[in-house]
Structures are given as structure tokens and as C-alpha cells.
Design a protein around this nucleic acid. Sequence first.
DNA 1: GAGTGGTCTAGACCACTCC
DNA 2: GAGTGGTCTAGACCACTCC
Lengths: 242, 242
Amino acid sequence: MPKNSPLSKTVSYAPPKPLYEQVKSYVLKRISSGDWPAYCRLPSEHTMVKDMGISRMTIHRALRELTQAGFLERIQGVGTFVAPIKAVPKNLELNDIDQVIRARGSKHHCKIHFLQAEPADTDAANLIAVSEGDQIFRSYFVHYENDIPLMLEDRHVSATLFPEYLEMDFHDSTADRCISNRFALLSHEHNIQAKVSDAEISHFLALDAATACLVINCRTWFGEKIVSTARMVYPGDRYHLG
Amino acid sequence: MPKNSPLSKTVSYAPPKPLYEQVKSYVLKRISSGDWPAYCRLPSEHTMVKDMGISRMTIHRALRELTQAGFLERIQGVGTFVAPIKAVPKNLELNDIDQVIRARGSKHHCKIHFLQAEPADTDAANLIAVSEGDQIFRSYFVHYENDIPLMLEDRHVSATLFPEYLEMDFHDSTADRCISNRFALLSHEHNIQAKVSDAEISHFLALDAATACLVINCRTWFGEKIVSTARMVYPGDRYHLG
DNA sequence: GAGTGGTCTAGACCACTCC
DNA sequence: GAGTGGTCTAGACCACTCC
């Protein structure tokens, strides 16, 4: 024991990473250093077992996880190869409006302009995949950051899939979160465009002059069915994504 | 053998899914049906081993993969629980401009307005994290869809990290893909806003009148270092994301 | 037939939590 | 101490590719 054993204890060895993590790190290091460029063939599992003295299941787990993460490609009967680099997914994460506002240190509140059942007109019927005239729910909210309007949320909701929608409390939670909490395994489809404010947008977002706005259209699926579609409009000078 | 055995052969049984996939499907079905709501405790691995007659490693793999996918949460020494539903990531995938244009069935080409080394001014130095006056590369391209300008790409590139940048061929590949092909394990950071076209944008994108534009700023990291930053401007009436 | 990766098992040891 | 999940092994059988 060295004389500074109390200190040594404080330093507390990082617990050694599991073997499969060590193998993953090793492979990633070889890839990022350029030792193993794209399409390069890796040693076989059997070879790695011999060379590293690690069991095949452990090697296999490491390589499988790197494959799932997009770094490798494996072909049964052939071998393991470094994946071409496009594999890095360029995703933009979309967060809830109230969380974004709170993360900025501001106060969020939501004004409900209307929240009602109505028969679907042609547009709404298309948006949410019901027949024209079917009853749907519609909500029309404006979200504020410290009393300045930041987002107009115009939402259609399926009355058959989510009959309780009108009774939700939208002051504590967003519509989006109410829907997420109600259904398991939702999927989302987004579309983002830029658009100059029109009379409707200018009115509800309190814009003096024509302003470029971000318009995000989001459709939410539960399995094969559309639960909700939302049009969210942000003034470009007050908000940006990402 | 039934009399239509040739047909039976043609039908070709789907090969049975691996056991761990069957376990995953079973658990997902229980979750999405509502049998196992959020925070619900799952049977222990040992219990599943007994009940299903499947070895623990196989059960464990199924539950681990569902955990990685965000459906479950596991606590060592405690148990396995259904994850609260927020887990569904709402991501927007950002694709390469030339691929988007070709996917629309249009023709892509790129006009190079300039491509040069220059000393970093204050803005550029901040964008790419070098010192003012350091040499950097700058490219200024316009991408066309069938001869209509669709995107202005103003890019700064680190001359130390990517000295070959000026010699790349940008007619066959995009700048973004050149960079991706050059480095392994890049990460990207995006910022999207709406902005009214100014004189510069109107000129290069051939806009007659003030137009709302999508502006995407993208920073590309190689480990701790910034390889490139790009400002990409799309006219809102010609393009939308997603 | 030799080599590859894909799956699965029965057992082991461990760290951790809860009692 | 009993129960939990986390890791690891040594072996097995398999489907697949390439020769």
C-alpha cells in the first residue's frame, strides 16, 4: 500500500468497463484513427476470440451493438466490415414548447382560444383521415413566454381514438404530452416550412408587421391510425429550433 | 402431404423469428395493449425463464434490447419496469440536398460562386472556433432543382482539419458528403429559423420579392473539434423539411 | 468442406437492493 | 439472506458464402 492510501481510497478506481465495452472501444478507436477505413474487413469473431482471449459471446455482443449503432456491417457467411460513414444520423430533436421555454429560464403559459367538438371539413378530414362531417376535436391554443406569444398551436384530434381529449387539463401539461401519456408506442411525422405571417397568425401572435414564421406540421400515429395533427407557428424572430 | 404440395412449397413458411425477437414482441404486445402500463413491474428474468422455458441469456437479450430502445427501465437488484411513454423520440431526419432533389424526380446541380482560402474574420472565427486571422476555407454554393435555385450554402471549413477541402469535386458530391466521407464518427448540431430574404439571399436565390426563408445552421464536429459550419438558406415557398 | 456470423443453452460469479 | 439484473464462459447447432 502506498503511504497515501487514504487518498487512494478517495480517488476510487473507476470500476473497469465490462469486457464487451472494452472491445467496442477498441474497435471504435481503430475506426476513428483511420486504421480501419470504410469497407475494411475486421478480423473474424473466431480470430478475435483467440487474439483477445475473450469468449465468442462477448465479442459477438460488442460487434452486434456496434452494428446496431451503424458503425459496422455484418454479412453472415462472409464477414464484418466497417460501415461507410454516412451512417451518422443527422437528426434534429424536437422538444415540447413548455420545456423549451422553461429551459430558457422563462415562464410558460397557454391561452385556450377554443377547445370543442366539430364536424370535420374537407381539410380536417384529410389531415386526420376521417370522413367529411365526422365529429372531431379541435383545439386552438397560444403559448406564451413571459406574456409574449411564442407559438400558435392549431390541433385536430381523433374523437374516436381519444374521446377524453376535451376534458384534459392543458394548463399543467401540453396537448402533445396529454396525447403521449394516453397512448403507448406513438410515432410522429414532421414537416417544417417558412411562411410569411398572414392576418390570422399576426393576430394571435401579436405581430405588428409581416414576419417570417416557422410552421411545423406534426402528425401523430398510433399504429396505423392518426391520433392528432397539429400546425404550430412560431415567429422567426422570437424562436429557433435546435 | 396435401395434394397441392407444390403450392405449399411456393408459399414457403416464413422462417420462425428468433426466440429473443419473440420475447420482445410478446413484451411489446403486453405494453401496447395496456396490460402492462407505465411503471408496471415485469416478471423477473428468473420467472420468465421458468414460465417460457427459455434460457436466461435469451430473455436477458430481449429485455436489454427493449431497454436500449426506451421501452423498459431496469434497476439492478430491484427489477424491470415499463418506461413512461415520453420515451418516443421525436426526431426530424435531415437529408442531403441532392438526394432530396433526386427523390423528387428532379435534376440537381450546384453552382460554385467561390471556393477559397481566406483569413477568418470575427464571425467566422467564432463559428469555427479558430483565432481571428487564421486561414480557413470558405465555399459559397447555390444548389439548383431543374435550374431553379433551391438552396444557398455558405460554408466555413477548418483548413487544419481538412486541408484537401479546396480540391474536392463538388459537382458529383455535396460538400456535406465530402466531409462525411473524410472523417469517421462526426456529430452534427443544427439550428433552424425562419427569416425574411435580404438582398444577398434574394440575389443568389433569384427571389423577386421578400420571401420567408428557412435558415438551417449546421455545425459539424469531429470529436472535440469543429470541422465545418454551414448556413443553408431555402426559400419557404419552394422547399419544406421532412 | 472450411470459414463466417446468428442464435441458444446451462451454468457461473458478481453488484446491488430490500428485508 | 433472498431476489434482482449485469456479465461472462465454453460449448453447441445452424444458415450462409465461397471454393
